[in-house]
Design a protein around this nucleic acid. Structure first.
Lengths: 244, 244
DNA sequence: CGCTGCTTTGATAGACATCAAGTTCGGTGG
DNA sequence: CCACCGAACTTGATGTCTATCAAAGCAGCG
């Protein structure tokens, strides 16, 4: 499908300063001058076809990537073939922070639909954030937020049951979609049941069964990957331990 | 026990530049001039008695903390009383990175034995790392390493069985202890079975049973919190999926 | 010396995994 | 345009692992 020689970044660009994601992405809260310097830094974009990898574990780390359009998953795997989805990323979210620690990426980033990312050369980002306090601080916040998010996932994996996990997952997804102007009640999943299961520490059959149960309980309407949320409060109660 | 009025940081200090943890802590790889500036920044220390909290979720975020002596756990909890240990920290490791995202800490840090931490005022660290490229880069590496570590825990929680989890936990602990000059084969656990269980997504009884099984299988000698590792390779094989 | 908190161990139950068919859907080629 | 194919999904039957409930043992400390 995609021509392998066509690896060159997309020519045309949209500056951060005029990007409609600037309130969700790296530039949050930056003033004019900072923003214009950031424009110069984030000069190139790259398209990633559905199923292709943006980077993979072991690749040399050069840049961070901001999702401009589309949807990604990241997965780590252990020496024996165990595999774990560590996150799903949508527009405005950053990919590649794992690479800083070692100068090598430690996970794979796979596009779950045809996507576009902005390339943020890491060395230049470090330089620029030595100049601009706000950018520096914003970048630190993003890394810290990732740590906090991961702790939330650990809580989920360590202490929740299947229904709670799936409910939490759906609430998180819709929340993020809503922040991007999408409906709070209707969504299309970009990932398979197996990928959801991997993320949530469940088998795909359990994910499927739990979707069915939610439908039976009148919480959702499920048609394959089309989900309509009927009872948001009900889902929230599930997360808040409405068991025992 | 500890006098509540005695909250003032410990007066006497040991400079980063002459600290025996400098190869494990924030100063890794820093040259003389950077190191001396860091000395000025990390001026104060604080003692935390066993069972006391260094900070708790919701506290205003001011500083990072480097463990100088002792042992900590960090835990997050959800609105309903669910609780999850997200990590154990020993000498040279940093605490408080979660706080950057929100200007509030999002987890509790509890001393598991009488401990001492070096206080790293965060605002000053940001200033200094605008001046010193190496310090900036080192700090970013530490945050990134935390993210990578968390992904490893997600893999553990999402895809490993009880024996594998405990084996991985023990191997990780001994590795870190060894890097600090302790024996690779003999250790004293600073945490309860319940805390280990919380971290590993298991109940305390399961942790206890698994210890017993490891002992029966000749992998360990377990006497309460005293652990002697007899068959390191055996443990490693367990982690690498020696099941099925 | 007797608490109290931590740990071990046993018996049972429950949640999720596994194995095994079917079903739906989207894409492809005739 | 329709039929077919394969991937993804659903659903059922069964099994395994871990949680839960319960009781007893151990160890450190006042």
């Amino acid at each position: 499908m995609t021509d392998a020689t066509q690896v060159k970044p997309d020519a045309f660009k949209v500056a951060c300063s005029s990007c409609n994601l600037r309130e969700l992405c790296l530039p949050v809260g930056l003033a004019r001058p900072d923003l214009e310097r950031l424009d110069a830094l984030v000069a190139t974009r790259r398209s990633v076809a559905r199923g292709d990898m943006l980077f993979r574990a072991g690749d040399a780390f050069q840049s961070l990537y901001a999702v401009r359009t589309g949807f990604f998953k990241t997965c780590v795997s252990s020496e024996d073939g165990r595999d774990q989805v560590t996150g799903f990323q949508m527009a405005g979210e950053l990919l590649g922070l794992d690479g800083i620690s070692n100068d090598r990426h430690s996970c794979d980033a796979v596009a779950l639909e045809d996507s576009q990312v902005c390339i943020i050369p890491y060395g230049q980002l470090e330089s620029l954030s030595r100049e601009f306090t706000d950018l520096q601080h914003q970048f630190h916040k993003i890394m810290s937020r990732e740590i906090v998010r991961d702790h939330g996932v650990m809580l989920l994996l360590g202490s929740m049951r299947a229904e709670e996990r799936l409910a939490a997952f759906l609430m998180n997804l819709t929340q993020r979609l809503q922040a991007r102007g999408f409906s709070a009640s209707s969504l299309i999943l970009r990932m398979t049941r197996e990928e959801i299961g991997s993320y949530l520490g469940l088998k795909l059959e359990t994910v499927s069964r739990t979707f069915s149960k939610f439908q039976d309980d009148g919480l959702l309407e499920v048609k394959q990957r089309h989900i309509r949320i009927i009872d948001q409060d009900g889902l929230q109660q599930l997360i808040n331990g409405a068991h025992c």
